[in-house]
Design a protein around this nucleic acid. Structure first.
Lengths: 352, 352
DNA sequence: ATGCTTTCGTGAAAGCATTCAAGGCACTGT
DNA sequence: ACAGTGCCTTGAATGCTTTCACGAAAGCAT
């Protein structure tokens, strides 16, 4: 591969001139400029990103750290990030942490040695990122947290309205007449799990309903977790008539458990998921879910990072994206609802 | 961030010694060695990968090019690749091509400027990679093709036994008594689609069955494609009693079409998918599918790349992984099978 | 034609780690 | 005690690009 010196020689100009043509740093007059361009074309020359990065103390790399690309929620985030990155000439380095903080730190340290322009991170469980990311900031990298935030995070971030989404979904169930609502939450040390639970509780409290202790089950964000916890809920007396699953994988697991218990969804138990994954509509019944856009999450994160690179000391931005309840087939009024409603009508009539 | 010079000064040794300690290039005696290590520990020093890459003409980066991480088959491949890469101290740069050859070339060119140690690529449609990847080889990068190969590929590769998998699945259907078999294939310019079709045809031919022209439908590897083509198959006379979908997404789409046509799967139509994705078992009925391990695919690819780096001129390796028919619920004998079988029994009895 | 401003172009330095040739030291054998 | 050997250690050179200070040329006005 050719280098700049050879281009300079071929075009009969100095190194500096080639650089200026390449980067539009200084205006170079037509004749020279063309000679340089022609030499580059001829040789297929490409500047070494390594040398460039070394000199500028920064590369066109964006580091992205996620828990696990196998979780179907994350590919969307990655894709959104990669698209915006690519469109702006950045490359994405992808790292999976498996929610293992040590692995996260290992990745962070290793990535730093490449002087990436930005760091897009979905913090691992128990993540105490703040310290580690400081070195990135010092090195001039823009750091953006996505989906969840570590404790005491005061930097840029993109999350969704977890509380609102859960509140809305829960209120919807209550509006249909459900009085026995249970929730299967994700790990409660994650901010997104916490917020979804908050929204759920808020709706339940607002409706003046009870929340028996067993109606709240915490688990991991996967099908196995949802399955196990739904089994437990299924044995409760009274059995909940509706379950809010704090993500779609949990919801899918719950659906399996419901089916195995020979109960019908939605007739016996209504179920709402969270995320609105593509795969939520291939089940029978299709899963009603609180939709959020992973693509948007990733794309926004990279955009925030690029914005910060452009303007280092602009105020911190913590973007919160909206959710949307996607009503499909897994929710119905509780079996007794009709009865209750007519009784109320009778009482009302009696009073009149 | 500290640099090597500062470490050398702090430890009271020369630059070279620090380098030797860092890279184990030459044995350094304990006292010095410890002083260097201590200095590194104190400062949290990390060698600049940029400077290192510049000097060595190679980085610890592995470039990975895939069609689209949103396709649920690919995250497994990426994860397998990343795990092996990470375990060996390599980072993975991920690029999506959307099966767009221009985008692929753009990515390749850009990546080359980082002098990656390896290039793991799932070729895009119409991919004429051979030329482009030559520059990587020249630059000392190991190139490995995964899942599909471009025309005239003569380098390392990891694929699966597409022909065998399809043959086995089709034979299984035939064994159950199906005589009207249709296939919905992926894009036929992809080697994996071609091979799956070959396997299908081979089984059909071997059983002496006819293959009416309309029974072969080509489409893209997604649900929409499977849905549309299954609709067409549904209107054929005679209607096929079994369909081989050449990947699970196509299978899922076909399942939707079958359901919409008020037909039952598997009673009216048997369906086999290809890939054995996780999500194939959340449908009703669960999709019988030819399983392949995407993780293995990715992991093997990186391993091949690392092996080649270690031994540049070892013979080319083209690994072919096995598939496994995962029988679930979407397949049954055709409705008429019992009748046919008993008629044959009668005829046999008459002859006797 | 002279002098001044602007606009361009140049060459060298800087950024950091690796590697190679050369020199230093200690120890062995005689 | 000396030459020889082997193992460490050193300093300089190298890889490629960007940037900065400086100088040259060109354009303009008088």
């Amino acid at each position: 591969m050719a280098n700049m010196k050879q281009i300079a020689k071929l075009a009969g100009v100095s190194l500096g001139t080639v650089s200026h043509v390449l980067n539009n740093t200084v205006k170079v007059r037509e004749p020279l400029r063309n000679r340089v361009l022609e030499a580059i074309r001829q040789t297929g020359y490409q500047p070494s990103q390594l040398a460039r990065g070394l000199r500028k103390d920064k590369t066109d790399i964006l580091a992205m750290i996620i828990p696990d690309i196998l979780n179907p929620f994350f590919p969307g985030v990655v894709r959104g990030a990669e698209d915006i990155a690519f469109a702006n000439g950045y490359r994405l380095v992808l790292c999976n942490t498996d929610n293992d903080h040590d692995k996260e730190v290992a990745h962070l340290r290793a990535l730093l040695a490449y002087l990436p322009s930005g760091l897009i991170v979905i913090p691992s469980d128990f993540s105490e990122l703040v310290g580690e990311t400081d070195s990135f900031r010092k090195a001039g990298s823009a750091v953006v947290c996505v989906d969840r935030t570590p404790r005491n995070w005061d930097g840029d971030s993109v999350t969704i309205n977890n509380d609102g989404g859960a509140f809305h979904a829960t209120s919807y169930l209550i509006g249909l007449g459900h009085r026995h609502l249970a929730a299967i939450t994700g790990p409660l040390h994650l901010t997104n799990s916490q917020d979804r639970l908050k929204g759920f509780k808020r709706a339940v409290r607002k409706a003046g309903l009870q929340l028996p202790p067993g109606y709240l089950q915490e688990t991991t964000f996967d099908r196995a977790g949802g399955y196990a916890k739904a089994k437990i809920l299924m044995r409760m007396v009274p059995r909940p008539t509706a379950i809010l699953a704090c993500n779609d994988l949990i919801g899918l697991g719950a659906l399996m458990a419901i089916r195995e218990a020979k109960l019908r969804c939605p007739e016996d138990i209504s179920l709402i998921g969270f995320d609105g994954l593509d795969l939520a509509d291939i089940t029978t019944p299709q899963l009603t879910s609180v939709y959020q856009s992973p693509y948007q999450l990733g794309a926004t994160a990279v955009q925030l990072a690029l914005d910060r690179l452009a303007k280092v000391d602009s105020p911190v931005r913590q973007v919160v994206l909206n959710t949307e309840l996607r009503i499909r087939e897994s929710v119905a009024p509780p079996l007794g609802a009709e009865r209750i409603r007519s009784r109320k009508a009778r009482e009302a009539a009696a009073l009149a």
